[in-house]
């Protein structure tokens, strides 16, 4: 394959991964263009991390094919490893070393040394605003600082493709926004392809050029954020009514009753549709208790496709916190 002709940084075909009887990834296919940010959006346990582990050569697929940066992840694992960087979901910094030493060790494992390495470390620690804390032990870093260090570290060997597995999991909203700004800057300045997994829809909306929505090991929709939102309609109206909820009027667009008892109607224009919804309700003697509407989000798209919400399961987050504390 000629280097210049390669359009895609990642090409995945019918990838399957089974753990015993459990099929974590059930035949996913997608392509990621060079230089774009591609997000895998889905709830916990959807198969996102398993996919990342296959693409980064940590796991062998049960079947299917994956090519990253032009090389097959199974046959040319070493060539792939040279060209990728990854920020894992769980913290993977060395807590007993300083930020600078963490960078040094990582650089060493990638065969970098001498002045070139030192300059690169300085540049990247400045990029993530940790240069002044370079001689501080990482165990005294906040979660956000550790994440930033991991991001800087993953850029050290200038990867073609960068994998970020839930890069802002467990961070507070302010720190999350901070990390996002680095990811955006990274795409601009370093000209790399970024593959991101997340279960925060805002994250995918904010960062991704294209999004694949994954659920139970399958990609259920793929496209730009705008494309995906079009699946729902232009506006979403939520109704809370007295007594049993049922779709009393379907003229406006697709209507579903949500598990929490609310009614969701997808409409093309909420401000015009709402008065008509009131009229229709009155005609049928349905009493509306509450009405809200908003532009569709990726969460609505997910809801539309699966009937469930992408929720941040608190349990899993707690697990992350406990694991972080268990570290020596």
């Amino acid at each position: 394959m000629v280097e210049e002709e390669r359009m895609y940084a990642i090409e995945v075909e019918n990838l399957v991964k089974k753990f015993g009887d459990f099929e974590a990834v059930k035949g996913v296919s997608f392509k990621v263009k060079k230089g774009e940010i591609f997000a895998f959006l889905g709830p916990n346990g959807a198969g996102k991390t398993t996919t990342v582990h296959i693409l980064t050569t940590l796991l062998k697929p049960t079947s299917g094919k994956a090519v990253v940066a032009g090389y097959d992840v199974v046959e040319d694992a070493r060539e792939v490893r040279k060209r990728i960087g990854i920020v894992f979901q769980d913290p993977s910094v060395d807590r007993d070393l300083t930020a600078y030493e963490n960078m040094l060790v990582h650089g060493g494992v990638y065969g970098l040394k001498g002045r070139e390495l030192k300059e690169k470390i300085e540049e990247l620690l400045k990029f993530v605003e940790l240069w002044e804390f370079r001689n501080k032990l990482v165990k005294f870093f906040s979660g956000g600082m550790q994440r930033r260090l991991e991001i800087a570290r993953s850029l050290l060997h200038h990867p073609e493709v960068l994998f970020l597995d839930e890069p802002t999991l467990g961070l507070d909203p302010q720190t999350r926004a901070h990390v996002w700004s680095y990811i955006e800057a990274m795409k601009e300045e370093q000209e790399m392809t970024i593959f991101l997994t997340t279960h925060y829809m805002e994250e995918a909306e904010k960062l991704a050029d294209r999004v694949a929505i994954i659920d139970h090991g399958r990609i259920i929709a793929e496209g730009t954020v705008e494309d995906l939102k079009k699946l729902v309609g232009s506006d979403v109206v939520y109704l809370k009514v007295e007594n049993g909820a049922e779709c009393f009027e379907t003229d406006f667009g697709s209507c579903v009753v949500l598990p929490d008892g609310r009614i969701r109607i997808d409409v093309s224009n909420a401000s015009k549709a709402i008065p008509r919804i009131f009229e229709a309700a009155e005609k049928r003697g349905v009493k509306i208790l509450e009405i809200t509407y908003h532009r569709p989000t990726l969460n609505d798209v997910f809801l539309h496709l699966t009937g469930r919400e992408i929720r941040d399961e608190g349990g899993n987050l707690m697990k992350g916190v406990i694991r972080a504390r268990m570290r020596r």
Binding site: L58, R81, I84, V109, G111, M326
Partner: peptide
Amino acid sequence: IWDREFGFLKEVLVAPASRKET
């Protein structure tokens, strides 16, 4: 095994360096 539990091992396993040498 702690390294595996807490990520550093993964760091090493995705690196192109020879695992034997590491």
